[in-house]
């Protein structure tokens, strides 16, 4: 099932499917790919910000990144096998 990383519930593992460009070129999407948001990578939202649940803290690979929801909307995930 196709889901955005933005909408993933807290502490649920999922697998990255793809990162979509919102415009072209999309430097933010390119950077997300550089940071390891690539197909097959396991991701998990480990914390959400105190106001409006924004930004998210996402664990990808061995690293935690704080991403705003708008940034995380580019990342599509599927359920972990």
């Amino acid at each position: 099932m196709d889901q955005r990383l933005r909408d993933l519930s807290l502490r649920t593992e999922a697998i990255v499917d793809r990162v979509e460009d919102l415009q072209s070129p999309d430097p933010i999407a390119a950077r997300l790919r550089d940071l390891g948001f690539v197909a097959g990578e396991v991701v998990q939202v480990v914390a959400t910000g105190p106001i409006g649940g924004d930004p998210l803290v996402v664990l990808v690979g061995y690293t935690r990144f704080a991403l705003r929801r708008a940034e995380a909307a580019r990342v599509f995930v599927r359920a972990a096998a």
Binding site: L22, I28, R31, L32, L35, P55, V57, T63, R64, F65, A66, L67, R68, A70, E71
Partner: peptide
């Protein structure tokens, strides 16, 4: 233009 946070913890 969107400016990213993309901040490593």
């Amino acid at each position: 233009i969107e400016h990213a946070l993309l901040l490593e913890l």
